[in-house]
Design a protein around this nucleic acid. Structure first.
Length: 508
RNA sequence: GGCGGCGUAGCUCAGUUGGUCAGAGCAUCCGGCUCAUAAUCGGAAGGUCGUCGGUUCAAGUCCGACCGCCGCUACCA
């Protein structure tokens, strides 16, 4: 094992039948912040996101617009990439399921499972809603205006389909999955979500079909080109494809296994289907699954019909990129549902960013300007703040490691609060310039230096701005923890500038 | 129906294996300060930890019942 550890983090790939929305942004920002922290800790880190581009809905949407499916997805996929760009997402790769590398990986995984005897031909019959791309049980269907067997979602009659499908024999994996999870008790986080996954497995597993003959827009099975692979063998495999699975010239184990960030809605597929597929194929299982909740809007799930859809890019215009990122990361305990409200966004922004971080930077710069000739001064190695800094780093690190950004940031903000209190105690603005003031301000500058590092995964632009205003050279993102968080590194003589408020207060 | 989760100060939530566990942040009130973005600092107030029982010397913390929310229930990010 190398001294440096490798971290490979993935988001779900997003289905391109809609443009990026807040839910996509939520998961992606969390992944970004987690991987930024990992890089700060000196790990080799790869962060992957991408788009899911196959399936009947895409095929139909393309037909409706009179374009080829490829042209359709080529139009939408870049919108996701562009959105992540705007959100300052530092993904190392962006995978599309229509790429050759992905198709190769899917073929490889399918073939392995087929060779293992876990994929078999069978007949599937049922009532099928084309819009949902899904079969329904009789008791799930509803009657509308006297018309029986209507899809409960789309409120249109379903069709009776019967087709030959290949099935993945998921039912064979129940014990193996339970054993594996028993041996890897920390693989599923947070715990209560993990329990749901285990409950699903204990409840019994049914084989699921993995192919369609009726579908054209997808990846053909390597041993039977009459069939196109369907949904999960296609989508999930992206995580392997992006690290070279299926490419003889690459070793996917250079990065594999992954930490998967997922939403609670796709827990079954990721925590039950996916590990079983990997077991069958002889691929190591993921290292970890982090299961997030929904980011609701005004207490309800976002939907077009509710009119409560929030466009993340609009919010950036109003409250700034880092204001938005901070809110998403700090307001909600990961794993639980969060509730997005404009009032909450502004409240968090004003209290944490404007009043605490922004104002601290401003008051420090002003006092340094007035009392220290605008040049930074050295901290006291034995400063009372040193302890707060140690605690802030240790707690932040622990919470980032636990994939709890909201708590990590609260721990970081503890140092900001401590610094404000420290200034209040010492009142350097009342004292004559001299050694006493210099030391107090050196302590505050040192605290700001550490805060800039610790908050950089969440608010990278702001962190860099603070870094520069206190006269630190280079990029804050090039700092490496834990060394960079050790107290006493701020050097006297740096030019300190005040600048405009980092976060102007916003009136509700 | 089945499985799972939740219910702790006005709000968002912390509270490992039961014994300073009744907490933090925000909001509110009072006071201080004026370097700072009417920011900041200190203090106060605020909860019978959903309800009712039980186990125990001791229970938000374990057990049972109940009430109220919510998720999943099979192949839709």
């Amino acid at each position: 094992m190398a001294a440096v550890s490798r971290t490979y983090v993935t988001t779900p790939i997003y289905y391109v039948n809609a443009e990026p929305h807040l839910g996509h942004a939520y998961t992606t920002i969390i992944g970004d912040a987690i991987t930024r922290w990992s890089r700060l800790m000196g790990n080799d880190t790869k962060f992957l996101t991408g788009t899911d581009e196959h399936g009947l809905k895409i095929q139909q949407a393309a037909e409706a617009e009179g374009v080829s499916p490829q042209a359709f997805v080529d139009d939408i996929a870049p919108k996701f990439a562009a959105a992540w760009d705007r959100l300052n997402i530092a993904n190392d790769d962006f995978i599309r399921t229509t790429e050759p590398r992905h198709k190769a990986a899917v073929a490889e995984l399918l073939q392995r499972c087929y060779d293992a005897g876990d994929i078999e031909l069978d007949t599937f019959a049922g009532k099928y809603c084309v819009a949902c791309e899904e079969y329904y049980q009789d008791d799930e269907l509803i009657e509308i205006d006297g018309v029986a067997d209507c899809c409960p979602t789309h409120r249109k009659p379903v069709e009776y389909f019967e087709e030959e499908n290949y099935f993945f024999r998921l039912s064979r994996f129940q014990d193996r999955l339970l054993d594996w999870y028993a041996q890897h008790p920390n693989a599923l986080t947070p715990e209560h979500r993990g329990n749901e996954a285990l409950g699903l497995i204990r409840g019994g597993l049914r084989d699921f079909s993995i192919s369609r003959t009726s579908l054209e827009w997808g990846i053909p099975l390597p041993w039977d080109d009459q069939h196109v692979t369907y949904v999960w063998f296609d989508a999930l495999t992206n995580y392997l494809a992006a690290v070279g699975f299926g490419d003889p010239d690459q070793d996917y184990n250079d990065w594999w296994p992954a930490t998967h960030l997922i939403g609670k809605d796709i827990l079954r597929q990721h925590c039950v289907y996916w590990p079983a597929m990997l077991m069958s194929a002889g691929v190591e299982l993921p290292e970890r699954w982090a299961i997030g909740g929904w980011l609701l809007s005004g207490g309800e799930k976002m939907s077009k019909t509710s009119g409560n859809v929030v466009n993340p890019l609009d919010l950036i215009d109003e409250i700034g990129l880092d204001g938005f990122r901070y809110y998403v990361l700090a307001e909600t305990a990961y794993g639980n549902d969060g509730d997005f409200t404009y009032e909450g966004l502004v409240g968090k922004y004003n209290s944490d960013l404007a009043n605490n971080l922004g104002n601290l930077a401003a008051r420090v710069a002003t006092v340094v300007t007035k009392k220290c000739d605008g040049l930074g001064t050295a901290p006291d190695p034995e400063s009372a703040l040193a302890d707060a800094a140690r605690t802030a780093f240790a707690d932040s690190a622990s919470f980032w490691e636990d994939l709890q950004p909201s708590r990590a940031l609260d721990a970081t903000w503890g140092l900001i609060r401590a610094t404000n209190g420290y200034l209040e105690q010492n009142e350097p603005w009342k004292a004559e310039p001299g050694a006493g003031v210099d030391t107090v301000m050196g302590d505050a500058l040192e605290a700001l230096r550490i805060v800039a590092i610790l908050c950089s995964p969440a608010v990278p632009d702001t962190a860099q701005a603070v870094w520069e205003r206190i006269g630190m050279p280079g990029l804050v993102s090039d700092q490496r923890l834990p060394d960079a968080a050790a107290w006493g590194q701020y050097e006297a003589g740096n030019e300190v500038v005040k600048g405009d408020p980092l976060f102007p207060r916003i009136k509700l």
